[in-house]
Design a protein around this nucleic acid. Structure first.
Lengths: 353, 353
DNA sequence: GTTTTTGTCAAAATCGTTTCCGGCCACACT
DNA sequence: AGTGTGGCCGGAAACGATTTTGACAAAAAC
């Protein structure tokens, strides 16, 4: 009874098994199945039938080893942030996956536990040959991930820029987001416009702030830095920021928020201070996450077609993998979606908190 | 000039390179680095130093091929849904990743574009040897994924049950969720309690409904199916459901919602009908997504420690990979979080919509 | 002094593909 | 008849690791 195999697990058929079944050599099977030309149409059909009936699927591992190509693209998400801003990533992955699978590439998502291990995750993926290209977001002005990958000549595409921009990226026009937010608020009569910004380590934060400054300048207003607060990417982020802002005496009538969650939690903060968001203080968010239309007041924000965004990324990745070395760069505009949270100025009834 | 390599790409060091640098054979390097005992302490140190200075990382592909173990666990998410219910998945992945990396396993996430390709994604992962174990959620009473994997004897863990439950799974106690929701509402004086359920194809939907029925029975109330509506997993889901419900004349004073997004969008629907959510109609959600505390009225819902959930899954996966074949099954309780959206009955001022 | 054991390592086989190289055959062209 | 020329296919060498086998000393046992 020894050696008796009681598992139901059937052995995965070899390329050798196919070769025997089709009565040809292993190399012919490989050529036939991979669409090479120098194989007789008749033979190819025989091989295909044999592979079909045996249920043969080539071992991805073996072919990766031999070809030195994994046919997979890795998307790195940075976990602690995604919990709150995830719809952004997921919409993007939607488009990216569509594009890549159409091109015969696998999309694989890996997570970086925290800030410091981002580079480790990337190094691991590259050095251990786990993918042919990388995609990641949340870029910083000085981004060691970009530096490292550029130095190694490894294909990658980012969502967002750094301060050099010698690589392929897709990004929103954050400057315009900032400028248009201010324009809208100025048109509504606001003069004291503050910012609840995303973390300053990210490039897009700076671009948005630059846009805000430009908008203010354009309107002949002075940028008052005491109206700005940097918000971490946590859940109570806007609430705490707005509390700090008002308790220290700064009294903006409008707030440009770095993302929707900041804006939404800022609403809570305002209410705690006895102010009515969307009446006493105008708010504009950014990203148009699904929930933005469902909070009260509904959130005025900047939207973007994330799936299309993902598809752009996919195209860039493909270009990279096909050997195109000149970096492609696209900056797409994010239109504003007007809802309730922005409101005319002048209604502000300042009460003591 | 031909053959000149102008890339900066440095060649990845071989195990052979390490062997030469350390002055030993390839096999010794392998044994030394993999912690085998029959290698001299002195030699091992020399090998480790050589590997270190060369920056040697064993090729994951090659070792996978030889060992026939990938050391990766695949989590399959079903994309069209995740866009709206994603915080649930991401919290879970957080814990799972923590567990697996601690055990030296890679976590990889793949997406299924739609319903039909879920099984294909799984077959692909398994048949092409891309992972050692699978994890997925959104199980159904008759789940062909589970059937297929069980038949093949491939290790997997699910989030949620099917109708057989002969495999390893982790799940919330959905029956208790339903029952406790009703208990709470009954305690608040409600008699006409309706349900906005998640799609009926999922097991957890049925379990929740069973709990609701049990709760009603317990309170001596009759279950009125005309107060129930099945909601798809889209963004306007609850809004449409509640509109349908009230327009066809059903007038529940309280709604048990299958998830938070259903509840939140149902609030919009109620408002459109001239009703005040949390005053005219009580609402209870499920999942406690981050935004639940930020909508108005804040949402009473059932919470769960997703990271802990993920860790449980990780442990089960590990057990599976270590050859334990008896299925492990855990059902964890989800405590209710009381906020504003549930309210006493009897305030209902029915207006014509 | 011979045999056995033990510790340490090298050689070679192996995993499942792909791809290079060369061979065979049929056919056409001198 | 001899020489190319394609078309088609098989053999064998990779790819980079792991694991088995066995060799060779030194130490221990008889």
């Amino acid at each position: 009874m020894k050696g008796f195999d009681n598992t139901l697990q059937t052995v995965r058929p070899d390329i050798r098994a196919v070769a025997i079944a089709a009565g040809v050599s292993v190399s012919t099977v490989s050529r036939a199945l991979n669409g090479y030309v120098d194989v007789n149409a008749e033979t190819r059909k025989r091989v295909e039938r044999a592979a079909e009936t045996l249920g043969y699927k080539p071992s991805h591992t073996a072919s990766t080893l031999r070809r030195n190509k994994t046919s997979t693209v890795t998307f790195m998400v940075s976990k602690p942030w995604t919990k709150y801003v995830d719809p952004y990533f997921l919409g993007l992955l939607d488009g990216l996956e569509l594009m890549l699978t159409a091109a015969g590439l696998d999309l694989q998502v890996v997570m970086a536990r925290d800030f410091d291990c981002e580079i480790d995750v990337i190094r691991n993926a590259v050095e251990r040959n786990r993918c042919d290209a990388l995609v990641f977001a949340r870029t910083r002005p000085e981004d060691e991930r970009i530096d490292w990958l550029e130095k190694r000549g490894f294909p990658f595409v980012t969502v967002g820029r750094n301060n050099r921009n010698t690589h392929s990226f897709v990004d929103r026009d954050q400057v315009k987001v900032g400028r248009n937010a201010v324009r809208r608020l100025v048109a509504l009569g606001h003069q004291r416009i503050g910012q609840l910004t995303t973390p300053l380590r990210y490039t897009y934060t700076h671009l948005t702030m630059q846009g805000v400054r430009e908008g203010l300048e354009e309107a002949g207003l002075l940028h008052d830095p005491s109206l700005d607060v940097e918000c971490p990417l946590s859940q109570k982020t806007g609430e705490e920021a707005v509390t700090e802002l008002f308790l220290r005496g700064a009294r903006p009538t409008a707030l440009v928020c770095g993302n929707d969650l900041i804006a939404i939690s800022a609403m809570d903060g305002l209410r705690r201070l006895g102010l009515v968001p969307g009446e006493d203080v105008a708010l504009i968010g950014c990203d148009d996450i699904p929930i933005a239309a469902h909070v009260r007041p509904t959130l005025t924000t900047f939207t973007i077609d994330l799936a299309a965004f993902g598809i752009r990324i996919g195209r860039m990745v493909q270009a990279r993998l096909q050997g195109h070395t000149t970096p492609q760069q696209e900056v797409v505009e994010a239109p504003i979606v007007l809802r309730q949270s922005d409101c005319p100025s002048g209604q502000t009834k300042v009460r003591t908190p």
